[in-house]
Structures are given as structure tokens and as C-alpha cells.
Amino acid sequence: MINRLKALYYKYEELIAYAFWGVATTVINVAVFWLLHHFTGWNYIINATIAWILSVLFSYLTNKAFVFHSPSKSLMGDFLEMISFFSGRLATLFLEFLMLWIGITLMHQNQIVVKIVENVIVIAINYFWSKWLVFRNSENKKSAN
């Protein structure tokens, strides 16, 4: 039984790590937004933007180190990798806004349902963007010894 669980863990290790660090990223995003909301007089768009930047930076660092195991090759290589990561997240942020607008404003659907569906789509796109474009040269697989 233990060996079977270990085998399952190693088979899905990358997805488990992605989910764990994704939850941590979400907590950071919400916490930063909340702190800025309560301790500054700034507009919520500014607060959301700062929270998004910090959470995406955290996400990049944790995805690089703990999900896709992407070694640092050079400062310029890491910078380009980070730009690609942020570009993908920015693209899906705009896609998120578009899906929310279509689902809520144009189709008059339930906001929570639209947000959940949109979130699932965005998470999947972000995972594949990271796996296939950002960290494609990484040692993604560990052996199940």
C-alpha cells in the first residue's frame, strides 16, 4: 500500500506541487490585497495590481524551484524566463477579464459560477504555459526511487 501511494505521488508530484504553491500564491494575493485595502487609502485597482505583481513573482519563484525544478543558468536566462512567465500570466489575466465580461455582462450568468469556470480554464492554461514555454528546458521529472 505504501509503495502504491509513493508511486502515485511520484507520478503526480508536479501537479501536487503546482496545486500546493498555487494555493499559497492565492493566499498571498488575497492577503496583500486585504492589507493594502485596510492600511492605505488607495483605489482597489491599485491594490489588486500590487497584489497581482507580488503574487505572480512569488508564483514564478516557487514554480521555478519547487514545481518545474528549473536551474538558474545565467542572470539573463532567468530574466527572460521570468518575462515569459509574467507575459503568460498577464495574457491569462486579460483572458480572465474577457471571460468574466462575456459570462456576466453579456450572458447574464451567475458571477460565482462564471468565476469558477474561468478560474479552472486560467489555471490549466497557466500550467501548460509554464510547463511547455517557460520551464520547457527544466528537469521536470524526478525518478521514483
Rank of each mutant, 00 (worst) to 15 (best):
G41K: 01
N47W: 09
S87V: 13
E13P: 00
E96G: 14
H108W: 14
W52S: 03
L15F: 11
A24I: 12
A91D: 10
K11L: 12
K64A: 08
A144F: 02
S84Y: 15
Y18A: 06
R89T: 05
I16Q: 02
N47H: 12
S138T: 05
R4W: 10
I123N: 06
N140Y: 05
H69K: 13
F135W: 02
R136Q: 11
N137R: 14
A144D: 12
A91Q: 04
V30P: 01
L93Q: 10
S59I: 12
V30T: 13
F58H: 09
R89I: 06
I16A: 01
I104D: 15
I28R: 00
L57W: 12
A7Q: 11
F39T: 06
V114H: 03
F68S: 02
N126R: 02
K131C: 07
H37V: 06
T26G: 00
A51H: 02
A51Q: 03
V32F: 03
K73G: 15
S143M: 03
N119C: 05
M99E: 00
L54C: 11
L100K: 07
M1I: 04
G77R: 04
E81D: 10
E96V: 04
L100Y: 13
F66T: 14
A17R: 09
Y12I: 01
W42S: 07
L98N: 03
S87Q: 10
V117G: 09
V27P: 02
I45M: 04
N140H: 14
F135V: 09
V113T: 13
W34Q: 09
L15C: 05
T25I: 01
L8W: 04
L133M: 09
H37N: 12
A7N: 13
L93G: 14
F58K: 04
M82N: 07
H108C: 05
V27K: 11
I2Y: 08
V27G: 06
L75D: 08
N29W: 15
E81L: 06
F128K: 08
F68T: 11
N47T: 13
S55Y: 11
A144T: 02
S138Y: 02
S72Y: 07
N145E: 04
V117P: 11
V67L: 08
T26S: 00
I28S: 00
M82K: 04
F39C: 03
N145F: 05
G77W: 03
R136C: 13
S74K: 07
I125A: 11
A124P: 07
N145D: 08
V122T: 11
E81K: 01
L36T: 10
N110A: 10
H38A: 13
I125M: 12
I50Q: 08
S74E: 01
N110L: 03
K115W: 04
L8H: 09
I121H: 10
L80G: 09
I53A: 13
V117S: 13
L93D: 07
I123R: 07
L80Q: 09
I16W: 11
F39W: 09
F135A: 08
Y60G: 00
P71M: 00
S74H: 08
E96D: 14
A31G: 11
E14H: 05
V134K: 02
K73R: 08
L93K: 12
M107A: 10
Y12D: 06
W132I: 02
V114T: 14
H108S: 11
K64G: 05
R89N: 12
